[in-house]
Design a binder for these strands. Structure first.
Lengths: 76, 76
DNA sequence: CGTGTAAGGAATTCTGACACG
DNA sequence: CGTGTAAGGAATTCTGACACG
């Protein structure tokens, strides 16, 4: 589930979010898709789950910079 | 692993085969990708494994029509 | 039969920017 | 801050065909 295989359009289908939102989360260092030779982003299923979680947290009032370390550590 | 999420280019990367080969296997009813609104094929990880297996069988001398039922039944 | 290729079109994705608030 | 959109370009994929054998 860690294989970066899907393009942003598929992530949109799976999450219901827009390309803009997904690219923004990357810009804010919350997700890290890989790039094809042509420059297209490729995501994993784990990324999809992460994106969903990020969106929920944002709706809950958190800010992107507060979610940056949310992968493991939460203290500080 | 049954989610149809990757485009043909990704399948090529994962299998080392060409788009031509992958499309041909579909034409011969050996794999069944889904289509996006735009007409692009989407494959699952299971499809990737299947494609690899098909290619090996072909190298072993089998013909596409002999691999059609190979999913479950093999008698007859 | 299984696969290569050149051909033209259509759909996808990319970046940087202006906008709102 | 997080997200929407119009803008133009570049990369991806599609189909049908001719080729070889």
């Amino acid at each position: 589930m860690n294989d970066k295989v899907m393009s942003i359009g598929t992530v949109c289908d799976l999450t219901g979010l827009t390309e803009r939102q997904i690219r923004y989360y990357e810009e804010k260092q919350l997700i890290f898709p890989v790039r094809t030779k042509g420059g297209a982003r490729k995501y994993s299923f784990d990324d999809v789950e992460r994106v969903k979680e990020i969106n929920i947290k944002l709706r809950d009032g958190f800010h992107t910079f507060e979610l940056r370390k949310a992968g493991r550590a939460c203290g500080e």
